[in-house]
Each structure stands twice: as C-alpha cells, then as structure tokens.
Amino acid sequence: MKVPPQIVRLLIVTVVLVGSYFVAKSLLTPPTFGELGWYRAAALEELAQHKLTYAGKQECEVCHDDIWQMFHAGKHQTLSCEGCHGPAMRHVDDPENEHLLKPGSDQCLRCHQQNPSRPDWYTQIDPEEHLEGECIECHIPHNPTEMPEEEEASSEQ
C-alpha cells in the first residue's frame, strides 16, 4: 500500500517537532535539574556555601573563658554574645585586628525599657525613675545583677 503524501509530510513535521523539543529540552534544562525535584539540585550546595557573619556563641568560649564562666552564672545567660557585640565572625578569624563594639546604655534600654507590649514576666525599668548614670557603672553586663568593683568601673573608658 502506498502511504499518501500528506501523511508523509505530517510524519516529517511531527518528527521534526518532537525532535526539536528534545533538542531544546536537553539544551535548556540546566545540569542536575530534576535530581531531587522540580529544581536544580546543585542550588542546595550553592546556597550552603554562603559566608558566615555571625560566628555563634560557642566560638567565644575558647578565648574568653573568664567572661564565659561569669556570663553563664548570671541572669544574662540566655543572651547571645553577638547580640550585644555585633556579628563576630571576622573577630574570631582575626581578633587582633577586627575589633567589636562595646554596647552602651542605649543597647540595654533596647531590651529593658518599660513597654506595655512586653510580657509581664520580663524585667523592665523606667529609665527616668531608675538610678542615673551609664548602666555598666552599676551592672556588669556579663552578670547584670552584680555591681562592678570601683577601680574596674573607673578604669574602663
């Protein structure tokens, strides 16, 4: 039986279309696409390579174990060192040249200022009624219920 020419033409067009679909697909699909799902599996590794800015509290213990001990005996133990001192990854890598901030009273008030939105269990002060002066004159930041010793307080800053 002779295949009608329009069927042959249709077949050619179909083959070309299907063929070009597969060529385009192989060219346009990036490598590792679909290995885990409808996405590029390699993206996971790429995103995991992003650099760190915050070192994490556990890093500080090695070099500042005195402060570490005091810190974990006090009421600030749930705080992160880097919350007050700022991101410290660069400091951990090069402590001699990369210095950290020493937070002032504004940082204390950011957390402790009286605010009706804050939960009742949390200790807050009214800065107008509380004793006057820099907070760290009367509170050791790493163990806030303790008073700093006289000469220590005056030699700082």
């Binding site: 995991a48 992003h50 915050y54 994490g56 509290k57 749930t78 992160s80 919350g83």
Partner: peptide
C-alpha cells in the same frame, strides 16, 4: 539560614534571640 543550619549552627535570628 541554609548556610548556617547545614553547618550545624542555628539561624542568625535564633542565635541572637535573648529569650528563646
């Protein structure tokens, strides 16, 4: 913080949260 959690660290926001 995918780059942190894959290294076994906490996300940055959790790290600095003072009250858990």
């Amino acid at each position: 913080c995918y780059h942190r959690i894959t290294r076994g660290l906490k996300p940055a926001c959790v790290e600095v949260c003072p009250t858990q």
